[in-house]
Simulated scan of single mutants.
Amino acid sequence: MRIAVIDDLERDARQLADQVSTYMNTHRIPADTPELFPGGEEFLAGFIPGVYDIIFLDIYMNGINGMETARKIRLWDTSCHIIFVTTSSDFAVDSYEVKATYYLIKPTTEEQVSKALDRCNLQMMMNEASILVPAKNMEIRLLLHQISYTEYLNRRVLVHLKDGRQEEIFMNQKDFAALLLSYPWLCDCMKGILVNFEEVDKLLDDRFVLKNGTSIPISRLKYQDVREQYIRYSYDLVRGGQLV
Rank of each mutant, 00 (worst) to 15 (best):
residue 3 I to N: 00
residue 6 I to K: 02
residue 7 D to T: 13
residue 9 L to E: 15
residue 10 E to H: 11
residue 11 R to A: 11
residue 13 A to M: 03
residue 17 A to R: 08
residue 23 Y to P: 00
residue 27 H to R: 14
residue 32 D to W: 05
residue 36 L to G: 02
residue 41 E to D: 14
residue 43 F to N: 01
residue 44 L to K: 00
residue 46 G to L: 06
residue 47 F to C: 01
residue 49 P to A: 10
residue 50 G to S: 13
residue 52 Y to F: 12
residue 58 D to H: 01
residue 59 I to R: 02
residue 60 Y to P: 05
residue 66 G to T: 03
residue 68 E to Y: 03
residue 71 R to K: 14
residue 73 I to K: 06
residue 73 I to T: 06
residue 76 W to T: 15
residue 76 W to Y: 15
residue 77 D to S: 03
residue 79 S to E: 09
residue 82 I to E: 06
residue 85 V to K: 02
residue 85 V to F: 00
residue 86 T to V: 07
residue 87 T to V: 10
residue 88 S to N: 13
residue 92 A to M: 09
residue 92 A to S: 05
residue 96 Y to R: 05
residue 97 E to V: 15
residue 106 K to Q: 07
residue 106 K to R: 09
residue 108 T to M: 04
residue 109 T to P: 01
residue 109 T to F: 02
residue 116 A to V: 03
residue 121 N to M: 04
residue 124 M to V: 12
residue 132 L to K: 12
residue 137 N to H: 15
residue 145 H to R: 10
residue 147 I to W: 11
residue 149 Y to W: 15
residue 172 N to T: 05
residue 177 A to V: 04
residue 177 A to C: 10
residue 180 L to Q: 04
residue 185 W to R: 07
residue 188 D to Q: 08
residue 191 K to P: 09
residue 193 I to Y: 08
residue 195 V to K: 05
residue 201 D to Q: 13
residue 201 D to C: 12
residue 204 L to G: 11
residue 206 D to R: 07
residue 207 R to D: 07
residue 208 F to Y: 11
residue 209 V to Y: 03
residue 210 L to A: 07
residue 212 N to C: 09
residue 212 N to D: 14
residue 216 I to M: 12
residue 216 I to W: 09
residue 217 P to A: 04
residue 219 S to I: 04
residue 219 S to V: 05
residue 221 L to A: 12
residue 224 Q to G: 10
residue 224 Q to H: 13
residue 225 D to F: 10
residue 225 D to L: 10
residue 236 D to T: 13
residue 238 V to Y: 10
residue 242 Q to K: 14
residue 244 V to K: 02
